[in-house]
Design a protein around this nucleic acid. Structure first.
Length: 486
RNA sequence: GCCGGAGUAGCUCAGUCGGUUAGAGCAGGGGAAUCAUAAUCCCAAGGUCGGGGGUUCGAGUCCCUCCUCCGGCACCA
């Protein structure tokens, strides 16, 4: 069984920020979970480097676009180890291997008759550097985004016959209810489809920074077509001398933010069909992390959360945990340093960290670090053994927050169990030796079960705990989540 | 402007098909315990479900409307 998961590729003009880290960590958690389930897993991320904004930014710096892309792609790549993200490959759309494969695939789209040359004449917004359809034009012949007056322009373009896929896309959404998740994202896509799909521009005539159109060398492909294809092209050259396409395509899961829903749920399947390729199984649309005031993070509002500050104060595992614990994955949610600190202290230090401490300490103290050969408490054992299956179910629904909640129910239950069984009282009476051993065995089992499921979120911490639980003799370890200044 | 989503306790969130008294966690209040990073556990308290109107025997849930926030509308997660 194979599992192929992707993040969007990040546009190199931006500086890496929390949003990029969020999606990358989510994909990494998912990849680690599936790998642990024994699936043959491939995890792809990378950078999107073509298009006019990159060319413009490079020109402003007085350097070549490629140089500008190199500088910025390196920043995105450098972010990954800092946030514990280990992809199997990092694609750059400026890779020669990618460009060649984009040309191959789109040549097939062309040869299959899904492309035509048209003169595009329409209303053009110089600020968007693009044309507007009739439906998009605001009152007074203005750009709905920039609110400036549009000008009449003509451009010769290659077009993709998206309109021809109207019915097939409608059928896709009807037949596969979970193609796009969560449901509200699917509804949004369907509402867009119902308005009627229009052909879209496939090339740019006046731009050089892109992948050349093989049948018309004066054009480059519109950057989205080049970018989307990364999910497919990467498999062809991620491992030198080996083509992984047959092994991993189609992808099981594309993770995307809600602002690029249309490209992934409508344009992308149509393009793949046009090329005669299979479409991905699922697209999961996550929400946005907002400032602690519930508004979009912005420098001017000063309501942002700096991932590097979280890393510095609380560590990488705390960041990874926090993002899926405090914000329900798939919905928008508010984040802030105060809530990071609160989660860190109450859940990581006090609940999980302390459970580890007290469990290791009691086994060391009452049984000289040797795990008693006793059966765990039966009812609790049954509930604990159900965890793996429940968590797997949540992951199959891409419910990273739900899985974490299932795990946390066990963490809380185990702390409660310590209070109920009172090992320190049992230890005073030799007659209660069997009961003590049952309690210690139950705690060991429970903590092991929880730690295994938690490992995709907090790989470093959980490796330490697993090692401590398997050591002979078992002995206390330093605090995993030491208290910090608030 | 048009399309889509969201608004539930001080905070972060659940809430299935319209059905009994709207549920958790955190913070704040009270108590117990001592294995543990003073970490834990128990109890109580905390609500005009954004505002207004409507449908219904019955609305957090369905409909209308207004307010606020988020995203899209050809390239920032």
């Amino acid at each position: 069984m194979t599992f192929y998961v992707t993040t969007p590729i990040y546009y190199v003009n931006a500086q890496p920020h929390l949003g990029h880290a969020y999606t990358s960590i989510a994909a990494d958690v998912i990849a680690r979970h599936h790998r642990r389930r024994g699936e043959d897993t491939f995890f792809l991320t990378g950078t999107d480097e073509h298009g006019e904004p990159v060319a413009d930014a490079a020109r402003a710096q007085g350097i070549e676009p490629r140089e500008w892309a190199d500088i910025n792609a390196a920043k995105f790549k450098a972010l990954l180890p800092a946030i514990g993200v280990e992809p199997d490959f990092f694609i750059r759309t400026t890779d020669a291997e990618h460009k060649r494969r984009v040309q191959d695939v789109l040549q097939r789209v062309h040869d299959n008759g899904h492309v035509y040359k048209g003169i595009y004449e329409g209303w053009y917004c110089p600020r968007c550097a693009d044309f507007k359809t009739e439906a998009e034009i605001a009152d007074g012949n203005r750009c709905p985004i920039h609110e400036i007056e549009l000008t009449r322009e003509r451009e010769e373009n290659w077009f993709f016959r998206l309109s021809a896929f109207q019915e097939r896309i409608e059928r896709l959404f009807a037949d596969r209810a979970d193609f796009v998740r969560p449901a509200r994202a699917r509804n949004e896509a369907q509402a867009f489809i119902a308005q009627g799909l229009q052909d879209i521009s496939l090339s740019r005539g006046r731009l050089e920074w892109g992948v050349q159109v093989p049948w018309d060398e004066g054009h480059v492909f519109y950057v989205w077509f080049d970018a989307l294809l990364n999910y497919y092209t990467a498999l062809g050259y991620a491992r030198p001398g080996e083509d992984l396409t047959a092994r991993y395509w189609p992808a099981q899961l594309h993770l995307v933010g809600k602002e690029i829903l249309k490209f992934h749920t409508i344009y992308w399947p149509a393009m793949l069909w046009a090329a005669g390729l299979e479409i991905p199984e699922h697209v999961f649309v996550h929400g946005f992390l907002q400032g602690s005031d519930g508004r979009k993070m912005s420098k001017s509002l000063g309501n942002g959360l700096d991932p590097f500050e979280v890393l510095e104060r609380f560590g990488v595992d705390a960041l990874r945990f926090y993002l899926f614990r405090d914000v329900s994955f798939g919905a928008d949610g508010n984040v802030g340093m105060d809530s990071v600190a609160a989660r860190y202290e109450s859940e990581l230090a006090n609940e999980y960290g302390n459970l580890v401490s007290r469990t290791l300490a009691m086994i060391a103290r009452y049984r000289d670090g040797l795990l008693p050969d006793a059966s765990p408490e039966p009812e609790l054992e049954r509930w604990l053994s159900g965890l793996a299956g429940e968590v797997a179910g949540a992951f199959d629904a891409v419910d990273l927050s739900g899985a974490l909640e299932l795990i946390w129910q066990r963490v809380r239950r185990l702390n409660r169990y310590v209070e109920e069984s009172k090992p320190w009282e049992l230890a005073r009476e030799p007659a209660h030796s069997a009961a003590l051993e049952t309690a210690l065995a139950t705690l060991h089992l429970g903590l092991s079960a929880v730690t295994v499921e938690l490992a995709p979120y907090m790989p470093g911490t959980c490796a330490l705990v697993s090692a401590a639980l398997q050591a002979t003799p078992i002995e206390p370890i330093p605090p995993l989540f030491p208290k910090r200044d608030r």
